[in-house]
Design a protein around this nucleic acid. Structure first.
Length: 734
DNA sequence: GACCTGCTGCGGTTTG
C-alpha cells in the first residue's frame, strides 16, 4: 500500500521534507487518505498540538493547487483571531510554495489582502464567524463570488461550537454559505472531549452517519493527581482589605495564603498552568505570588492571564510559556483552555473543586503531552474552619473534588444540552440578517433556508409566532410587503446597521486602564473610579492619576496598595446531574483514595460522618434555622426547576449545587404545603412563574409566550422526577 | 456563586 506521503501533491511533499519531518503522524496519515479518497465530511479528533491542522491542510492544499476553477477553494473558520494568526504563520510558507493566496480575514487583519481576495478570489481564507456574518450582509455579491466555488470548509476547535449562541450562529452561517453554490465538504477539527458522534452530528446534521471519524488512538499519558485540602484560619476570609504598605490587614492568615505558599514552593521553577476559576481569584493569587517573590528578592514567575487583560499583556505570558527560557506559571481563567500554542507544561493546577468535567479534561490536556512525561494535576480545595450551616459539615467542596476525579477517571464528559436556550435569540439575528442578504424573503423560504433541521430547528408555527412578534408595532424589526415578502422595519434597519450586529453575544461597557501609555486591560463600568483611588490589576497595584469619563480611560501609576475590582456576574457555572449524583456516591462510599492529602482526607471523613447521620434520617430535608434544605443530589438545571416549584407556591427558594434552600419554613411546615405543591406540578403552569428568561442578546425581541414555551420544552423531561419530590418531603417531614 | 469570544465602511491623514 502506498504511504500517505506518496499520495500528496509534489509541492506539498517538498514542503514536508523541508520541515525536516521524518514521518507523518498517525492522525495525519489517516486524514490524508480519507481526504484524498473521496468527498466525505470528516471529523478529526485529537489533542491540541497533535498536528490536526496539517492533517487537514496538507491534502486539501494539494488539491486546491491542482484545480483550474477560480474562486476560494478552502474556507477555514476559527473561534479566535489568535488562532487564525497562528495558522497563517504555520501554513503561509506552504501556500506560497503552491502559489495559493492565504488571506487572514478578521477585524484586526489588514485590509489590502481582503480587497485583493474580493476582486480576484483564489486559494484559502481564514475567518471568524462574525466576519462571515459581516460579509454576507454587507457584500452579498462578493460573498457569492467568493463562496460559490468552495471545496471544503474547515472548522477548527469544533467542540467550542457545540453549545451556546455562537455555535447556533455558525450553524446558520454554514447553511447560508451552502445556499450560495456548491455543497462543500465539511472538515471538523476537535479536541478529544466527549462523544465524537455528537460533534459529527453537529458537523453535518442531515447526514451524521456519513461523517468519517478520525480519532487519535490511545496514548493516555500516566496521570498523577492530588486533591489538597485547606481550612480557613480566621474570620476575615474573603476580604480584600489591604493597608498602605500593601499587606492584607488580616495578615493573610487564610486558606488562600497557604495555597499560595504551596504553589510558590512547588511551581516556581517550571512552566505550569494554574486555573483559578474567576478573574478575581486570578488577580488575588497572582498578587500574592508576586509578593512572595518580591519579599525574597527573586524574579517573579507567576503571571495573570484572563479576558480583561490587554492583548499585549496576554501575549507576553503566552510567549514566555512557549519560549520556555524563563520558568513561568500562568494564573488563568478559561483563557488558556483553547488551542493557543503555548508549548507543553510540567503540571496543571486548579483552585477550587471543578464544576465541569469537560473543562477539567480540556485543562488537563495541556499537561503531559510528551510521550514519556506524566500529566500532573493538583486541585486545591478550601473549607470553612468552623462549619456554621449543617450543609458545611458535609464538606461539599472536598466531596465535589473527589467526585470530579472519579468521573475524570471514568472518562465522563457532559454532553451538550439538546435544546439550546439561545435558539430564539439566534433566530432573531439570522432572520434579520438573511432578510438583508436576500433583500427580502418569503416566510416559507426563510424556514427552508435556516430552520428546517437541527441545531437551528424551529417548528413553522413557532417561526410564525416569532415573526409576528418581530413585526409588531412596538418591536418594528420587520414588515411584510403586500406580496408576502419580509422586509426590514425601522428598528430592524437600525440594528442591522450597527457594528455590534455581527456578534451574537453581548459585551458590557468598561473602563480601560492605561499605565504610562501602555494599555493594561479593562474593568467593568460598575467599578467606582476616582482620582487617588487604588486598584489591583494585572497582578500589580495601582493608583488612579487621571480619568477621562468620555473616552472611559483611566490613567494609573504603580502604588504599594490596591483593591481588587469587581468582575463577577452573579451566577455560578452550572453543574451536571452526574456530578451531583457522584457526590452522593462519594459520601456513601468508604474508600480512602490515595490522591487525597491528609487534610482533604479528614474533610472527607467528616463529610461522610455527617451524611451517615443525615442520610439515616431520610436525608431529604435538613433544618437550618428558618431555612429548610431539600437535598436532590441533582444538577443545577433540576434544582432550578425545583426552586421554581416552591416559588410558584409563594415560598422563597433558591437552587444550590445539590438541592434547594427554602427560606422561612421548617420541614414540618413544608410538609403541610404538600397538597398545594401537588396542584402546581404542570410544566406550563410552572413556566408562568419563571423569571429572568431574557438572557441572550436578542431575547428582548422574542414574544414572552415563546420564551416560556421554550423553557417548558427544555424542562418537561424532568417533570416525573419533580413529581417525586413531594413524596420525599412527605417521608422526611413526618 | 463564571468564564470566553467578535466587529464595516468611510473619510481623513501620514508615509514611502
Amino acid at each position: 500500500m502506498a504511504s500517505s506521503y506518496d499520495l500528496l501533491h509534489r509541492g506539498v511533499q517538498r514542503w514536508v521534507r523541508d520541515q525536516g519531518w521524518t514521518e507523518l503522524r498517525q492522525v495525519q496519515d489517516r486524514a490524508i487518505r480519507a481526504i484524498l479518497s473521496g468527498d466525505s465530511d470528516i471529523l478529526i479528533a485529537a489533542a491540541t498540538a497533535a498536528g490536526k491542522t496539517e492533517a487537514a491542510f496538507l491534502p486539501l492544499l494539494g488539491r486546491a493547487a491542482d484545480r483550474d476553477a477560480g474562486g476560494i477553494a478552502i474556507l477555514y473558520i476559527a473561534p479566535l483571531k489568535a488562532l487564525i494568526n497562528d495558522q497563517a504563520r504555520r501554513l503561509g510558507g506552504l501556500c506560497d510554495d503552491l502559489g495559493l493566496p492565504l488571506v487572514r480575514w478578521h477585524g484586526d487583519a489588514p485590509q489590502g489582502p481582503k480587497e485583493r481576495a474580493r476582486r480576484n478570489p483564489r486559494g484559502v481564507i481564514l475567518i471568524t464567524p462574525e466576519s462571515i456574518e459581516a460579509m454576507l450582509i454587507r457584500r452579498p455579491t462578493d460573498a457569492r463570488r467568493m463562496f460559490a466555488t468552495l471545496e471544503a470548509i474547515v472548522i477548527d476547535e469544533l467542540h467550542a461550537f457545540l453549545r451556546g449562541p455562537r455555535g447556533l450562529h455558525l450553524a446558520g452561517l454554514l447553511r447560508r454559505i451552502e445556499a450560495l453554490g456548491t455543497r462543500p465538504r465539511r472538515i471538523g477539527l476537535s479536541a478529544t472531549i466527549g462523544d465524537p458522534k455528537i460533534a459529527a452530528a453537529w458537523l453535518r446534521p442531515d447526514a451524521p452517519e456519513a461523517v468519517t471519524l478520525i480519532e487519535a488512538e490511545g496514548g493516555q499519558p500516566e496521570l498523577r493527581l492530588q486533591v489538597r485540602g485547606y481550612a480557613e484560619r480566621d474570620a476575615l476570609v474573603g476580604t480584600d482589605a489591604i493597608d498602605a504598605e500593601g499587606r492584607r490587614i488580616d495578615g493573610e492568615a487564610d486558606a488562600l495564603s497557604a495555597v499560595a505558599d504551596h504553589v510558590w514552593r512547588n511551581l516556581r521553577e517550571s512552566n505550569n498552568l494554574l486555573f483559578a476559576g474567576s478573574r478575581r481569584n486570578v488577580e488575588e493569587l497572582a498578587d500574592r505570588l508576586r509578593r512572595r517573590s518580591d519579599e525574597v528578592g527573586v524574579p517573579n514567575a507567576f503571571l495573570p492571564h484572563h479576558g480583561n487583560l490587554s492583548r499585549e499583556l496576554r501575549e507576553e505570558v503566552e510567549a514566555r510559556l512557549k519560549d520556555g527560557a524563563v520558568p513561568t506559571t500562568a494564573v488563568a481563567t478559561t483563557t488558556l483552555e483553547l488551542g493557543i500554542d503555548i508549548g507543553s507544561v510540567a503540571s496543571v493546577a486548579q483552585l477550587g473543586a471543578p464544576r465541569s468535567l469537560a473543562g477539567l479534561r480540556q485543562r488537563l490536556g495541556r499537561s503531559g503531552r510528551r510521550a514519556d512525561t506524566p500529566a500532573v494535576l493538583r486541585i486545591y480545595v478550601r473549607e470553612p474552619a468552623v462549619p456554621v450551616d449543617p450543609l458545611d459539615r458535609l464538606r461539599l467542596p472536598t466531596v465535589r473534588a473527589a467526585a470530579a476525579v472519579r468521573l475524570l477517571l471514568a472518562r465522563f464528559v457532559e454532553p451538550p444540552e439538546r435544546h439550546d436556550p439561545a435558539l430564539l435569540s439566534v433566530a432573531v439575528q439570522q432572520i434579520l440578517s438573511l432578510t438583508v442578504e436576500r433583500g427580502g424573503i418569503a416566510p416559507a423560504a426563510l424556514h427552508r433556508a435556516l430552520f428546517a433541521s437541527p441545531p437551528l430547528a424551529l417548528a413553522p408555527a413557532d417561526l410564525a409566532a416569532l415573526l409576528r412578534g418581530m413585526a409588531d408595532a412596538e418591536a418594528g424589526l420587520i414588515e411584510q410587503a403586500p406580496d408576502g415578502l419580509l422586509m426590514l422595519g425601522r428598528e430592524g434597519e437600525r440594528i442591522t446597521e450597527r457594528r455590534d450586529f455581527y456578534a451574537n453575544f453581548e459585551s458590557d461597557e468598561e473602563w480601560t486602564l492605561v499605565a504610562g501609555g501602555r494599555t493594561l486591560g479593562t474593568i467593568p463600568l460598575a467599578n467606582a473610579i476616582a482620582i487617588g483611588g487604588l486598584i489591583g490589576f494585572a497582578g500589580r497595584r495601582w493608583r488612579i492619576t487621571a480619568v477621562d469619563d468620555r473616552a472611559r480611560v483611566v490613567q494609573v501609576t504603580t502604588h504599594p496598595a490596591g483593591r481588587l475590582p469587581m468582575f463577577e456576574n452573579g451566577s455560578a457555572e452550572p453543574i451536571h446531574d452526574r456530578l451531583a449524583a457522584e457526590m452522593r456516591a462519594v459520601l456513601e462510599d468508604d474508600d480512602a483514595p490515595r490522591w487525597l492529602d491528609a487534610t482533604a482526607a479528614g474533610f472527607l471523613a467528616e463529610g461522610r460522618a455527617t451524611w451517615r447521620v443525615i442520610g439515616a434520617s431520610g436525608g431529604g430535608l435538613i433544618e437550618a434555622g428558618r431555612t429548610t434544605h431539600l437535598l436532590t443530589w441533582r444538577g443545577s438545571a433540576f434544582n432550578h426547576l425545583a426552586a421554581v416549584l416552591f416559588v410558584a407556591a409563594g415560598l422563597h427558594a433558591e437552587a444550590h449545587d445539590i438541592g434547594v434552600a427554602i427560606e422561612g419554613v421548617t420541614p414540618g411546615e413544608l410538609g403541610s404545603r404538600l397538597p398545594e405543591l401537588m396542584k402546581l406540578l404542570d410544566i406550563r403552569r410552572l413556566s408562568e412563574s419563571v423569571e429572568g428568561l431574557r438572557r441572550e442578546k436578542y431575547d428582548g425581541f422574542v414574544p414572552e409566550s415563546l420564551l416560556r414555551a421554550a423553557w417548558a420544552d427544555r424542562h418537561v423531561a424532568m417533570l416525573p422526577d419533580l413529581q417525586a419530590l413531594p413524596r420525599t418531603i412527605a417521608a422526611a417531614a413526618v
